[in-house]
């Protein structure tokens, strides 16, 4: 047998695909597919699952969350609850037992939690000047309940968690990357939702007070504030206040809602 020395000139054992190209195809494809799944599941949740979640389930879900917001029945809370109750009377789809809680935190935020719980943060209360603008904020949150956004949000969060955990395991970098991408998708959804419930809140304000004075006050005031401070969360999760003011003003003029006398807010000590 004759031995022929042979130098490798072409390497059949390695592919010639550029690694960056492969990376682009893989991330693009997988990310695209995941976003698609996420969006589709989001719609399924919104239209199929969430409308059929019975109120009893929602109530027990709410109890899970409520552990963080202990109810201390102060005169202040009762006063605020009174404003909420007045709005609820005019809320057509009222089915839940709406409860208001005040969270002692400098953050400017209000939340709708499953089970009809509305959490107002101290930072927000401090910036509110009239009952009417507070009613607008509460009406907004009631809108989230009416549209069941709090459940949809919960479901989406769950989908995201399951998707990233099963597919990517604990590769924290990629998971983070994925979450950031999906958060962008999510904010598209939420912008639409926020507008929807701003409209709901405005109509409720008109039904309750027979005028809409103060509807835009709060947003106009915080517009001028530093977007980095306690307002950071508010700005991140909601459309810009300027946009909301414009949107509400447009609605007010097209519906010919009147402006009346504002009621001042007298928070009991």
């Amino acid at each position: 047998m004759k031995y022929t020395p042979k130098l490798l000139t072409k390497n059949v054992n390695t592919s010639t695909t550029h690694p960056l190209k492969e990376f682009a195809i893989l991330t693009g494809g997988i990310l695209g597919a995941l976003i698609l799944v996420y969006v589709l599941l989001g719609f399924v949740l919104e239209w199929v699952v969430v409308p059929h979640i019975p109120q009893s389930v929602e109530r027990s879900l709410g109890e899970l969350f409520l552990g963080n917001y202990a109810v201390e029945d102060s005169p202040e809370r009762q006063y605020l609850q009174g404003i909420l109750d007045r709005l609820v009377e005019h809320e057509p789809s009222q089915t839940l037992d709406y409860q208001l809680h005040v969270e002692e935190s400098p953050m400017v935020n209000a939340m709708a939690l499953p089970g009809g719980h509305i959490v107002l943060y101290r930072g927000l209360l401090d910036r509110v000047e009239s009952e009417n603008e507070l009613a607008m904020i509460l009406g907004h949150e009631l809108g989230h309940f009416a549209e069941r956004h709090h459940l949809i949000g919960l479901g989406r969060g769950l989908v995201l968690l399951v998707l990233s955990a099963t597919l990517l395991g604990d590769q924290s970098g990629i998971t983070q990357f994925l979450q950031d991408s999906l958060a962008t998708v999510e904010s598209r959804f939420s912008q639409r939702q926020e507008q929807q419930v701003d409209e709901f809140g405005l109509h409720l304000l008109q039904k309750t007070y027979q005028h809409v004075a103060g509807a835009t006050d709060f947003f106009e005031r915080i517009q001028k504030e530093d977007p980095e401070g306690p307002l950071a969360y508010f700005f991140a999760s909601h459309p810009s206040p300027a946009n909301r003011v414009d949107f509400l003003n447009e609605l007010i003029s097209s519906a010919h809602y009147p402006m009346g006398e504002k009621t001042s807010l007298d928070l009991p000590e």
């Binding site: 390497n11 054992n13 390695t14 592919s15 695909t17 690694p19 492969e22 990376f23 893989l26 991330t27 494809g29 997988i30 597919l167 990517l168 590769q171 970098g173 990629i174």
Partner: peptide, 24 residues
């Protein structure tokens, strides 16, 4: 970089090109 590429490739399957040069 190759590890991440491999993690992504693991999801959909196919030639693990990232590892080919390594073994070679």
């Amino acid at each position: 970089f190759k590890r991440i590429l491999a993690v992504l490739r693991n999801i959909i399957g196919g030639r693990m090109t990232a590892y080919e040069t390594l073994i070679d």
